[in-house]
Design a protein around this nucleic acid. Structure first.
Length: 614
RNA sequence: GCCCUCGUAGCUCAGACGGCAGAGCACAUUCUUGGUAGGAAUGGGGUCCCCGGUUCGAUUCCGGGCGAGGGCUCCA
């Protein structure tokens, strides 16, 4: 079965849920650490306890203000907590303010939080009498005979604990948002109202967190995409379909060119495969049987059903199969910037991060079982090289055999051991994700960390035993007999859409010189300096720089402001002095005015900067 | 797909009891030629998301749809 290479699997962004386990390869150096990494277990426990108590304080406040509200669950989560309530009407922002005000009173009163126990039957009666049907449902599923309860100020909640000693310890808390959430996460159940909040040990920590939220908002790739004129999506075009504007397309072109060069250096060959294909190919691959819900409905072409391509692998396999292959040819590495289309539910679409049409930086490696380790090492080397170029740090996970899976124990054992050997050869620490593999083979998942310390789904490397069987992918060995080839699916960047969406936020729109769509802008002081500006621009362009000229009749300060807002790395101011000295006055986006230098001087400075990217 | 919120100029957003539609930025023209983060004037620009209903009259109220945002679910 096809790989859920990067794009389809997992979350668009995942600052979510539980603390992440596992070792960090190179410690991220974020402005702020979003997750639990970097804190001691003790600190994490304290934070969880605090946030759990904050959830109880909120629940009490809600019950005080909305006595008819029914309590569901209210756990601590990364950076905060939530609590789900069953209420007749949804909470409004004004309600949140009232709830928060009531919470402050409860905190100020510093009520002790005490633990007690009840027998199950007693607890069921206790909550049943109060109409708390969700609590009753929870208690019924607790195997123990006694359950624990926590009480503050006459408000009692079923809870495993632990909690802080008193409500006064919940010092820095803020309610953030309200959202619908299903009871127990199932669409079939009642929709509840979930209030999210955040809680910290000190006011300063809360402020730092809120500042970080504001920074995320400032860096939002959808906002920057519009402000920097990089891309758009339009209702008339269709949801989840991206239009790349010249500047965004330039960034993409630069990344794709870089990607292609580096693939050629590493022995990959390029393929192009069609965007639509006969249903037959997807019947053979098994997509039709197993992936249909992500595929678009068939198109009729002369009475034959065709489908939009959801994955690239079938095409690559067909290319492999056009010849009888010898072991001497292997490994064969086919790469394609392959555009695929997958159905995503409307509610899940999000900017560039979750779309319906996207281009994967896909590759399939066909090799012998003996070559598997070496090939995986090669991919991991490549991953390391590429991610470093973009300034990401990362962490590896090994996903092993799930319960439902294809293939013999031997084959799984061999493949899993190969992946482990590769990880160890690369000296990568990794976390095992038991049973997290796909049913056709184990995989290595790489998660990366951006400048804000957020975690993103990164490269995946997957061994596949299924497609080689389905398509009968073989090679002739040294013994003259046919052998089953091993296939590796891998993406490094994931998809161009998601990767660039992430990069925009990672760089906050200020792309490094080698990726900046406009690297330098000439700013003539007065109209009469325009000719010189155009002349310098032509010189720099001839040397390979991406340069524009702002020859509008505006004041210098205005042009500088605009170039700065557009995050153009260099502004070259030219007036009488520069013409006389045949120079440019250089202003850097980061460092401000650098003074005058010759055109060649600026050129070699820029070239040096591009030679050491990242 | 589900819940909530939102949809007014290219963008960001005001607005009204149901009675000729507003600002800033952007754009055009003119003036200005100014040395490192916003010079001035004038002007053009609207199906107030779409369809239907109520009404003398709907951008405003009601219903449905589409789209966006925040979540949930799915994707492990």
């Amino acid at each position: 079965m096809p790989p859920s290479t990067g794009e389809t699997a997992s979350h668009a962004r995942s600052p979510s849920g539980a603390p992440r386990r596992g070792a960090v390869v190179a410690p991220p150096a974020p402005l702020y650490r979003a997750g639990m990494e970097g804190r001691s277990i003790m600190e994490n426990e304290l934070l969880e306890r605090l946030r759990h108590s904050a959830a109880h304080v909120m629940a009490q406040a809600v019950k005080d203000l909305f006595p008819e509200a029914k309590l569901a669950i209210g756990p601590p989560i990364q950076d905060g907590f939530y609590y789900d309530f069953d209420v007749a009407r949804p909470f409004t922002p004004e309600d949140l303010e009232r709830i928060e005000a009531r919470m402050r009173e409860i905190v100020a009163a510093d009520h002790p939080i005490t633990r007690s126990e009840m027998s199950r039957e007693e607890a069921i009666r206790h909550f049943g009498d109060r109409g708390e049907r969700y609590k009753v449902e929870l208690i019924r599923e607790i195997p123990e005979e006694t359950v624990s309860l926590y009480t503050q100020d006459g408000f009692t909640d079923l809870c495993r604990g632990p909690h802080v000693e008193s409500t006064g310890e919940v010092k820095a808390v803020k309610l953030l948002s309200v959202a619908g959430a299903y009871w127990r996460g199932s669409e079939k159940n009642q929709m509840l109202q979930r209030i999210y909040g955040t809680a910290w040990p000190t006011r300063e920590a809360l402020d730092a967190y809120l500042a970080n939220l504001a920074e995320r908002e400032r860096r939002d790739h959808r906002r920057l995409g519009r402000e920097l004129d990089l891309f758009s999506s339009r209702e008339e075009m269709g949801a989840g379909l991206i239009l790349w504007h010249p500047k965004g397309a330039m960034i993409r072109h630069l990344i794709e060119s870089f990607w292609k060069e580096e693939h050629l250096k590493r022995g990959y060959e390029f393929l192009y495969t069609p965007h639509i294909a006969s249903e037959e190919i997807y019947r053979i691959s098994g997509h039709l049987q197993n992936y249909a819900e992500n595929m678009y409905a068939p198109l009729e072409i002369e009475e034959h059903p065709y489908r939009l391509k959801p994955m690239n692998c079938p095409g690559h396999i067909l290319v492999y199969k056009t010849h009888l292959r010898s072991y001497r040819e292997l490994p064969i590495r086919y790469a394609e910037l392959g555009t695929v289309y997958r159905y995503e539910r409307s509610g899940t679409l999000h900017g560039l991060l979750r779309v319906r049409g996207f281009t994967q930086d896909d590759a399939h490696i066909f090799c012998t079982p003996e070559q598997l380790v070496g090939e995986v090492i090669g991919v991991l080397d490549f991953v390391d090289f590429l991610l470093r170029r973009f300034g990401y740090t990362y962490k590896a996970y090994l996903a092993t055999r799930p319960e439902k899976s294809l293939g013999s124990d031997d084959v799984w054992e061999h493949a899993t051991r190969s992946l482990v050997e590769a990880l160890e050869a690369r000296k990568l620490t990794y976390e095992v994700d038991p049973g997290g593999g796909v049913f056709y083979g184990p995989k290595i998942d790489i998660k990366l960390y951006d400048a804000l310390g957020r975690e993103w789904q990164g490269p995946t490397v997957q061994a596949d035993f299924n497609l080689p069987e389905r398509f009968d992918v073989t090679y002739v060995g040294a013994d003259g007999a046919e052998h089953r080839a091993v296939m590796i699916h891998r993406v490094v960047l994931g998809s161009m859409e998601r990767f660039i969406g992430g990069l925009i936020e990672h760089y906050a729109g200020a792309f490094p010189l080698w990726l900046a769509p406009v690297q330098a802008i000439l700013i003539p002081i007065a109209t009469r300096h325009g000719d010189y500006a155009h002349q310098v621009a032509a010189e720099l362009r001839a040397a390979g720089l991406r340069v524009s000229v702002d020859d509008r009749s505006e004041k210098t300060g205005f042009k500088i402001r605009e170039a700065q807002v557009q995050k153009i790395p260099y502004m070259l101011v030219v007036g009488n002095r520069e013409i006389e000295q045949q120079s440019v006055s250089v202003r850097s986006r980061e460092a401000g005015d650098l003074g005058a230098m010759s055109v060649e001087g600026f050129l070699s400075k820029a070239q040096a900067e591009m030679a050491m990217p990242g």
